[in-house]
Design a protein around this nucleic acid. Structure first.
Length: 549
RNA sequence: GGGCCUGUAGCUCAGUUGGUUAGAGCAGAGGACUCAUAAUCCUUUGGUCGUAGGUUCAAGUCCUACCGGGCCUACCA
């Protein structure tokens, strides 16, 4: 690949909110993006993976108050925990920042100023519910009352869970603030709106760009058809966030500065790296690629507001949104009351993160479908595929090489057809990774593992070993097995980086790169095989699912 | 209420632009082997593709309705 066509990629994952722990639902998205990035890097592509904590908003302000600490203390604590969780799950960000940062403050103000100058920001008086006791304007989720249509009680301020009606919080009957328990009053204030309708035409190009999954393009088309509305980007004090320039008591709404946090995080990375230029990635018509990995719940922010804001501030558009579905646990929504709310930390208390990364990979496709984490299937799949098929190849072959051949691989290729097939699979597996069709990649890898086990079974080295004149043949056969194992390890490396590293040590080889699929290993001394992965015990799952855990 | 997505063997999933007897892995059954973390190998039983209609020479694949699940509906992030 020559200089002019070399890919340069920036990947982001959705920013986790800094008021709670990372859970398995979060992890699905981060691990999906991490695998994709790891694959790019293995191929030698320039690829940066960034993220940050989403640290602003009313919820964080209230949570800090509740804990008797400052918001700054809260978000610092949470960020440390988030980063620890990600690291232990082998999610390797090139930069993990916070939206409550100097970079983000400057960029948010710049986005605002540029959009203001271009005529995309408008001010308007609106009337909202106000909690006099707490001196706060109330977001929909902080108001409960009776549905104006079906009269159901205890409904939140945006829609009715009983009859499905949508309405504005001011229409609720007998509204109550969930913060103070007092009825709110109506209060008028001036708010700033981002004038989304002006981007109608530009966004229709975005829709037709082909860089959105079909399901997502449909969804956007729907919002489009019902008419774009101006977006309220300001919030009244008290609020935890950035003050809007020119106003004493107004702050940017958290969802304005959250996606800008992508740029802030990248800016920080650029400051640390002399080879990186911020503008090269973000200026209009940049030749670089930018991908946002997000969940389907935040498509509106990334599919409508975000491209419009970028355009209004004279930045380029993302190359694509890669949207994933929600996770369910044993077919049920993840929820605390159902006992299916599993945090990253509680998982780590009982299970190896490699299991989860593998299971996610084994079932992830480029589609937006929800993902069911079925623990029976999880156990069967991990044990059968990873331990029974893949690791087993090393285990059964290394025994002979270690014990009878002084750890030395044979100089001969006794099964050129099998190994050629394993090498050729590189093309198709790479294509699957590239398209985020990880499940297809895993299917192909495991099919190769099956064929390798079949080969060993046909050759029966354990029988040949008893015939004194066939020893060299045994060395040949096991060398084939370990060569296959090396290739399979390379193909699994984006998914299982830590295991791959341990295996590189076992095989006594340099860190595997994708181009290493073109080579084989002969006449080479390996190290003593040691068990690399334990099978999952059903008891571990029981402990994890135990509500007390 | 409106909209988007989704429903294939016991479980988890593939099924390319509609085209011969609907596939895989796991689980189950029978057998082989014993090098390997009770791993592996061979053979094999399971499906009127959510339901009911329709279009077509031909439908899991297209259309309609209904049933179940998920999500969105812009101020929870």
């Amino acid at each position: 690949m020559n200089q002019s066509t070399a890919r340069e990629i920036l990947v982001t994952s959705a920013l986790p909110y800094a008021n709670g722990p990372i859970h398995l639902g979060h992890l699905l998205g981060y691990i999906q993006a991490d695998i994709w990035v790891a694959f790019q890097k293995l191929c030698g592509v320039t690829c940066h993976y960034i993220c940050a904590d989403d640290a602003h908003g009313t919820a964080i302000m209230l949570k800090a108050t509740e804990l008797g600490i400052t918001p700054e203390q809260l978000i610092a604590q949470v960020q440390t925990e988030h980063l620890k969780d990600f690291t232990e799950f082998d999610v390797r960000f090139d930069c993990y920042h916070s939206t409550h940062s100097e970079e983000n403050k400057l960029l948010s103000e710049q986005f605002y100023q540029r959009n203001l100058t271009a005529g995309y920001i408008k001010s308007q008086m609106i009337t909202q519910l106000f909690d006099e006791a707490k001196q706060l304007f109330l977001a929909d989720r902080y108001v409960k009352g009776q549905c104006p249509r079906c009269k159901a009680t205890d409904q939140y301020g945006d829609n009715c869970e009983v009859c499905g009606a949508t309405y504005s919080a001011t229409e609720l009957l007998n509204p109550i603030s969930t913060l103070s328990g007092q009825p709110p009053i109506l209060k008028a204030s001036e708010q700033l709106f981002f004038d989304l309708p002006q981007f109608q035409e530009a966004l229709s190009n975005w829709l037709q760009s082909g860089s959105l999954q079909p399901e997502i393009a449909n969804k956007l088309r729907e919002w489009f058809a019902s008419g774009l509305k101006p977006w309220d980007i300001s919030r009244e004090a008290p609020y935890f966030g950035f003050k809007i320039p020119g106003y004493d008591h107004k702050y940017f709404y958290v969802w304005l500065d959250a996606p800008i946090g992508y740029l802030a995080s990248f800016k920080k990375l650029c400051a640390q790296r002399s080879d990186l230029d911020f503008d090269h990635y973000w200026q209009p018509h940049s030749s670089t690629e930018i991908y946002h990995f997000i969940g389907k719940d935040i498509v509106s922010f990334h599919g409508l507001f975000w491209p419009a804001l970028l355009l209004g501030a004279d930045y380029r558009w993302p190359t694509a949104l890669n949207v994933h579905g929600f996770i369910t646990i044993n077919g049920q929504k993840m929820s605390k009351s159902r006992g299916t709310f599993i945090t990253a930390r509680s998982y780590l208390n009982y299970l190896n993160p490699a299991y989860l990364r593998y299971y996610f990979a084994a079932k992830l496709t480029p589609k937006v479908d929800d993902f069911d984490l079925n623990f029976d299937d999880f156990t069967a799949r991990v044990n059968a595929d990873l331990v029974g098929k893949w690791i087993n190849i090393a285990s059964r072959c290394a025994k002979f090489i270690n014990q009878f051949f002084d750890h030395q691989l044979s100089p001969n290729n006794a099964a050129p057809e099998l190994l050629q097939m394993c090498q050729n699979a590189q093309t198709s597996i790479a294509e699957a990774y590239q398209q985020r069709d990880f499940s297809r990649a895993i299917r192909e890898i495991m099919a190769l593992a099956d064929q390798t086990n079949q080969y060993i079974d046909q050759e029966k080295p354990w029988i040949l070993m008893k015939q004194t004149d066939e020893a060299a043949r045994v060395q040949d056969i096991c060398t084939v097995g370990l060569n296959s194992f090396r290739l399979l390890t390379l193909y699994l490396k984006p998914v299982l980086p830590s295991l791959a590293t341990e295996i590189e040590t076992f095989l006594n080889i340099a860190p595997l790169q994708w181009v290493d699929s073109k080579t084989l290993l002969f006449n080479h001394k390996i190290n003593l095989f040691q068990p690399l992965l334990q099978r999952i015990d059903a008891k571990q799952i029981q402990q994890l699912m135990d509500p007390a855990s």
